[in-house]
Design a binder for these strands. Structure first.
Ligand code: ZN
Ligand code: ZN
Ligand code: ZN
Ligand code: ZN
Lengths: 135, 135
DNA sequence: CTGCAGTTGACAATGATTCTCAACTGATTG
DNA sequence: CAATCAGTTGAGAATCATTGTCAACTGCAG
């Protein structure tokens, strides 16, 4: 049987547009920011659709999501492999980082306490060189 | 000079009450949850005050704050030393964990990229033994 | 006791995210 | 090409956590 398709996900103009802008910036942006980018680029996409699309992409692992300190969800198109982020608190510049040791550590800690089905979140914040200068 | 007092912070009935309930649970709770706990305990404290107090405590490092997956801020009274959390996705049970190696790693990574004034967030999620059983 | 800066609380205001639901669209079939 | 239908969209309403307002209140110093 070739039936059990969990979710089709049709490639529509709107979805293509969202994926499109996601490639035009390297930092994390909110759904509203992305909606504005689309609008000012001439692409007409409803705000609700932007939210839905981003949620779907995040769900599919196509984009990374995290919460800024105000609790808003921000998105970024990242590499496929598992990684974390080093983010500039001032300008938002983002660097993807990997740490096999950390991955191992989290797994060990969880196992040590009998936790299963483990996942984790890890972000590093700081001030990048460019922003250090401007007093 | 004994002048530069950033913020007084007077010990009022309300503030004592909030600190009080914070000691009655070991997992992370939202401001609203805490407000309900206070109310059902007979303590009359306004919701806005609970928010303000929690924000102040968090600011002073007296409590830990983090965002649940819905983006809501949740609070917990923790030990003073720097640590992270292993949280059960199902029941919320929380374990404080420490990882000197991770602390070192984040600092190194940040330095490597020229970032200064570094901080980080790290949480581990999973299903605890108690919750693994219940299918 | 008085005076005042710090606090409080009822309620309004904000703002991100989700919901509703009728109109639309893309692939598929004949 | 036209009919068909599940998936999709968008305008606007609805949610809901969190913050702002501001007059009344309350520790504490003089
Ligand atoms: Zn990423
Ligand atoms: Zn990781
Ligand atoms: Zn803690
Ligand atoms: Zn740490």
């Amino acid at each position: 049987m070739t039936s059990t398709d969990p979710g089709p996900l049709r490639p529509t103009r709107q979805r293509r547009a969202v994926v499109g802008v996601l490639g035009t910036f390297a930092d994390f942006r909110s759904a509203q920011d992305i909606h504005e980018l689309l609008t000012s680029a001439g692409e007409k996409v409803g705000l609700a659709t932007v939210y839905r699309t981003l949620a779907a992409l995040a769900d599919a692992g196509e984009v990374d999501v995290l919460r800024n300190e105000d609790g808003e969800a921000v998105y970024r198109s990242c590499s496929d492999s598992h990684h974390h982020h080093l983010v500039c608190r001032s300008c938002g510049a983002t660097v993807e980082v990997e740490g096999p040791a950390v991955e191992r550590w989290t797994r060990a800690i969880a196992e040590q306490h009998g936790f299963t089905d483990v996942s984790h979140t890890l972000e590093i914040f700081g001030t990048c060189t460019a922003c250090s200068g401007s007093s």
